[in-house]
Each structure stands twice: as structure tokens, then as C-alpha cells.
Design a protein around this nucleic acid. Structure first.
Lengths: 250, 250
DNA sequence: GCAAGTATTCAACGATCGTTGAGTATTAGT
DNA sequence: ACTAATACTCAACGATCGTTGAATACTTGC
């Protein structure tokens, strides 16, 4: 018989070469289920290619994971770096505002995730998972994004000349955390707010995150430490485990 | 013959019942490698119990995962709720400060992770991964933590009476993101800062997170929207993809 | 000390895991 | 048209996956 067993692959379907089809499918599946939650066959089935192609093109499943991570990082980082330098140049001979610096860091990401297509959305959701993973975060995030972050830190130091360096790093940590959970788009805030907020509404995040974070930086960057604007004393008086009655009466 | 094949189990080793040994080992391993990155045999080997015990005690691997998640949530939530009510009562007849409210939400978590022992540390690292996972986050986080979050939102509304509710939910999203990446303790900030900051130094986070977040809330909660204190205009003038020369000259 | 119930062990099931070597098609250079 | 290289297919490997039924050990109540 020799019936045509082709599943309309090759030229007929996507016309994309198998290597890219694999990257796209892997990106989407890894973003949803994580590295171990996706099998090589899950990926090649979704990409409509043969199982063996993963090892042929990438060597191993782990190397495919790294390749997915690297592909768009190489697009993003030059763009973000150029934007940061642009903001600094535009402010000459002065120094750009904290909000502008932060925005140069977050905007390219939010913009891509909002209007870059489903591949970009998956990519950022993948980053969100990797960034919070003790197994993958220190390897991949550091490798692909730390050089850019160091440039951001340098710009923040210029904008906050009296701020201890330690506070800037902590401020960055909180920034990247807020940004990261945004990319996860789990829909949790949608349920919580009864539909008032939408996880995928990244324009709303773009409006709010820079001023939120900038104000946070200023709050902890007082020369005499973060307690300048904080009031933790009331809490410290309440014991962590045992619940005492109201401390006001008696 | 009948040589003793016991690997010093039962009464000799931990003396803990197998169910708890499994929960402890699963907590530690799930936190590091995620749900799919750990096999049932990995868990039972670490717990030094038989493979079949997982299905006997918990029914399935997924139910074990949920049980790990639930165990400490049931300890945490009443404590956090009591602390929030305590702060509110202590401020009567007034309203507690934004910092105190936020601190009542974060402090029990940071305190447990800092001094509650390795089990608690693993638990929070697990939460960090789950919270950023589109597969698990909407299920587990919502189920176990949303009732408490709703109480937090209500308290924040009292402290920010003129703030649109939308802004409060966005502010909470950024808060939980910053808190989450703290729990992950990936060590990335350690490398970035050259040892100046330490991922596991949760006391430093306790000092900085409430004032940082409180300032962020106030920044975006202006009655006329978040642009009150923000300056995104400069950025909007710069195109996202194409890089133009300095907009100042010419 | 005996019975009932709970906890644990053991061996094994079919399914799926990542990877590979050998073979076939397709493309590019001359 | 022939060659060489690249892209892809096919079948299969051993290992590990989650789960289970039946048998054994331990604990508790009487």
C-alpha cells in the first residue's frame, strides 16, 4: 500500500524549519509546566516533528531549555541597554528621574509581553518561573541578565547619590519580584479583585510599577536607613507567636 | 539466616511516624525541584520509608503535594489573622499605619522563615515557586491564602480611604511579588551585590519591605491616578523598538 | 493474650522517560 | 549529475515513572 503517512509536515504546515518549531513549542510548554513537567515527546508532538530532532539540534533536553531562554534574551538585552542609555543622554546635562530609569528597565519587557505575540508572553512566564526557582534561577538569570542589571544599578546610584548601595540592591530585589509576578499572569489578582484588575493588563502595570518602585526606593534610601519613614515599633511590641490581649488597657 | 535488613528505620532513626517523614522530605525536595522534578521514590528514599507509603497515606503524589502546602498554611493563617486584628485593635480609636498593616502581613512569614527551622524555609521557597506558576498558583494559592488576603485588602482600604480599590489590588500584587522573590532565596542578589546583600538575611527584608511597599501604595493611590507622582512622559517619547537620536537637540 | 485496626513492606504492573545509531530524504556546491 | 553536508525519520534501548494488591509487622482496646 504505502499510504502517505505524512501528517502534512514539512513545507505544507508551518513552513518553519524544525529547529524553530521546537523552540516555539518548548517555550510554550516549559512556561506552563516547568522543565520537568514537559517531556521531549510533549514538545515534539506539539511541534509536529520527530522526537529525535531535539537531540539532533540541541544535544539534550537541558540544552534546549537553555536555548529557549537565550533566544529572546539576546533580542531584549541590547534593546533595554539602548533604552537606558537613551534616557540618560536625554537628561543631560542632568540625571534622569528615578521613574525614567526604572521605566527603561521595565518598559521593553512589558511592551513585548503585551503586544509581542504569544511567544513573548510564554517567554516572560517562563522567566517568572525560572527567577523564583532555586534550581534554575542562579544559573540562567545570572548568566543572561546580570550584566544589564549592573548597568541599571549604576544608573540608580546616579539618581540616588546619597543612598547606601545596600539599599539600592534591596530596592532592585523588590522591583524584580514585583515585575516577575506580573509576568507570571496567573490570574490570581483577577479572582481576588472580582474582575476589577486583570493579570494580563500590562498597560496598567506599566503605569503603576515605576512610580510604585521609585517611591519605594526613596523610602528606604534615607541616609539614616530605612526606618526613616517606617514605623515597625508597634509591631515589635506584639509577640510573634503568643497573642496578648490589647496592650492599651490595663 | 534472616539477616536484619533494617536500615535503622522505625524507632531507631527519627522516631517520627512515616507520614511526617514523608511530608518533611517532600517539602524539602519539592521546594528545590518543583512538583515534576521530584519522584515519589526520591521522596521515600530521603524519608527512609517504603515507596508505597505515599499512596497509602496520601492517595497520590498530587495529594501529597497539596498536603505539604496545607500543613503549614493552617498554622500560618490564624496567626497572621490574629496579628492583623491585634494591630487594628491597638490603633483604636484610630486606624493603623500603612506600614503596620503591611508588616502584620509580612512579619509572621519572614519571622518563620528566618528562625522557624529548615522546614519553614523550604515551605516558603515552595510557595515562591507555586505563586509564580500558572499551573499551580491559581489553584493552591487562591485556595489557601485568598481569605486572608481579603482581610488585608479591607485593612488597606481603611488606611487609604481615598484610594481607588483598583490601586490597592495592584499595590498588593507588587507587594506579594516582592515578598515572593524574597522567599525564593536564590542567592542572585548575593552575587549581584558582591556579597553586600544576602538572600537569606530576612531581617533586612523585614526592615525594608514595609516602608518600601507603603511608599509605593501612597504613590499610586493618588485620587487622580498613579501619574500623580510618576513621570512616564519622557519614556513615551522614545520609541520602543527604533532608537532615535537625542530628542533634545535639533 | 487475642482480635481489630493501622502502619509498613515487598514485588511487580504498564507507561513513559531521555537518548541513540542507523538509515532516508532534502539541500547546496561545483 | 555527482558529492557532501545538512535535516529528518524510524525503531528501539535501558531506566525510571506513579501506582497497586497482597502479605507482614506493629499498635491498641479489651
Amino acid at each position: 500500500m504505502a499510504v502517505s503517512r505524512r501528517k502534512t509536515k514539512k513545507k505544507s504546515a508551518g513552513a518553519k524549519p524544525g529547529k524553530e518549531r521546537i523552540l516555539d513549542a518548548a517555550e510554550r510548554l516549559f512556561a506552563r509546566h516547568g522543565f520537568y513537567g514537559v517531556s521531549v515527546r510533549n514538545i515534539t508532538d506539539a511541534a509536529e516533528v520527530d522526537v529525535a530532532l531535539v537531540n539532533y539540534h540541541f544535544g539534550s533536553k537541558r540544552e534546549l531549555f537553555a536555548a529557549v531562554f537565550q533566544r529572546r534574551a539576546e533580542i531584549l538585552n541590547p534593546e533595554r541597554l539602548a533604552r537606558l542609555e537613551e534616557v540618560r543622554r536625554a537628561a543631560l546635562p542632568g540625571i534622569p528621574s528615578l521613574e525614567d530609569i526604572i521605566n527603561s528597565f521595565t518598559y521593553p519587557l512589558l511592551e513585548r509581553s503585551a503586544r509581542g505575540g504569544p511567544g513573548w508572553k510564554s517567554y516572560f512566564a517562563l522567566i517568572a518561573q525560572v527567577n523564583n526557582s532555586p534550581e534554575w534561577g542562579p544559573v540562567l538569570m545570572t548568566q543572561y541578565f546580570d550584566p544589564l542589571v549592573e548597568r541599571l544599578i549604576a544608573a540608580l546610584r546616579e539618581a540616588l547619590p546619597d543612598c547606601p548601595l545596600r539599599e539600592i540592591y534591596w530596592g532592585y530585589q523588590f522591583l524584580t519580584g514585583a515585575l516577575t509576578i506580573t509576568f507570571a499572569e496567573t490570574g490570581r489578582i483577577d479572582k481576588l479583585s472580582g474582575g476589577l484588575c486583570n493579570s494580563s493588563d500590562l498597560d496598567s502595570v506599566h503605569e503603576r510599577l515605576p512610580p510604585y518602585v521609585a517611591a519605594g526606593f526613596r523610602a528606604i534610601c534615607g541616609a539614616n536607613g530605612p526606618t526613616l519613614t517606617a514605623n515597625n515599633g508597634t509591631i515589635k511590641a506584639v509577640r510573634p507567636t503568643k497573642h496578648q490581649k490589647s496592650p492599651r488597657r490595663h
